[in-house]
Computed example of a mutant assay.
Amino acid sequence: MPLSPHSFESLELAHVGRSFGGRAALADLNLTIRAGEFIALLGPSGCGKSTALNCLAGLLPLTEGKILIDGQRVDTLPSEKRDFGMVFQNYALFPHMSVAKNIAFGLQMRKLPRDEVARRVDEALALVKLQEHAKKLPGQLSGGQQQRVAIARAVALEPRLVLMDEPLSNLDAKLRIEMRAEIRRLHQSLGLTTVYVTHDQEEALSMADRLVVLRDGRVQQIGTPEELHDYPANWHVADFMGYRNLLDLTVDRVDGELAHVSGHGIRLVGRSVGTIAEGDLVRVAIRPSDFALDGTPGEVNSIRATVNLVEYQGREFASGLTSSEGLNLFAQTEHAPRTGDQVTMSVRPESVLVYPADLDAAADAGAPSRPAEVLV
């Protein structure tokens, strides 16, 4: 009988908060997770993502709010009664126990019959392709193999929810890519429900069904990878999702969804996000990959700049540039410019996002205008 995680219909975090010494590390988190979803909690260090995970796991009590599974509260239960599996950043394997015994440990603590423990251990080893390493100690394994043991230990419990706290951060780049695919394969093949913490936006985009972006303990946006990539709700999300060019400009006029902005010797037309009006200070976000270096000087959405730095990144070249008025800019192109070249950077209006510059207003702005059916 194959491993079969216990199912549920939905898990709800309702106004969940956690404070330390009167200061909120997590505030008013509202999220409903459907069975079988892969949810990534994403954000920079200190944003509250690990706090949220530890509250879910029962390792931290809630200061406010509640956690429910199919309408029944689970935040009042101790962690061992929640039927969740946990994969830690540092693996948390017992160094004196073999791989098989590490996987069996949680099952034995639940006092399962010996033959049931043996069956689950064998199936978990097969799932992560470590059968031939069953008798080895963790110290005899590579980092990627140790992480597979940690994952096997979690799924052997047949949990209704798997929690992963930056499980790939200690691996090298090649192993991270391999383990991303492995975790996604296990999630799909076992029908797991997974909550995954990471600060790596590429990792989250490639793995998750939905992303939850946090900043200073508060949710900034919840959506699919495509929604967050193409329609960041505010400039904080845009910054985190790779819109590396952030320019502080002033609104000249607004024509429907288009905003005409200027400052620092440049004029741009872009998509307005949130409520802005003529004369407002705004923050404009542009991805490096959306800039071309073949524009016409003097035209709107063209910026004259000098190339300062060129980095080869495989198929593309990343360039650091400086405008005539000293703005630092970044472009990503297929062909390499030369350091010292004078170029004209150009960008299409649909690739220019114009956000309210005020911090609080930006956080509450909501997503850019788009078809109603894809709003989160």
Rank of each mutant, 00 (worst) to 15 (best):
Q108H: 13
R34P: 00
P337T: 02
A118S: 09
D83E: 11
P349N: 12
L192D: 10
A100M: 03
F84I: 08
T306Y: 11
D172F: 04
L107E: 05
Q146W: 06
F8M: 04
R180G: 15
K101S: 14
V376A: 09
S324E: 15
E311A: 15
A152D: 10
D75Y: 09
L190E: 13
K101M: 10
V347Y: 05
A14I: 12
L13Q: 00
E202H: 09
D294V: 01
S4K: 03
H229C: 06
R18D: 00
R180C: 10
N102C: 10
P138F: 09
R348D: 15
K136W: 03
D360Y: 07
M1N: 02
A362S: 15
E123H: 05
I103Q: 07
L258R: 14
K129M: 13
A24V: 00
G58I: 06
V343K: 09
G320M: 09
L258I: 14
G106R: 02
M86T: 12
Y355N: 07
V261R: 01
R119V: 06
D341P: 08
R148K: 13
F88R: 10
L168H: 02
V254Y: 04
M97Q: 01
E316F: 15
R283K: 15
G36N: 05
G143R: 08
V74C: 03
K101T: 08
E334T: 05
T224M: 02
P113L: 10
D252V: 09
G242W: 08
M1G: 04
T344A: 10
F240D: 03
T322V: 14
E278H: 11
G106P: 03
F330S: 11
G48C: 04
P225G: 08
G43L: 04
S79C: 08
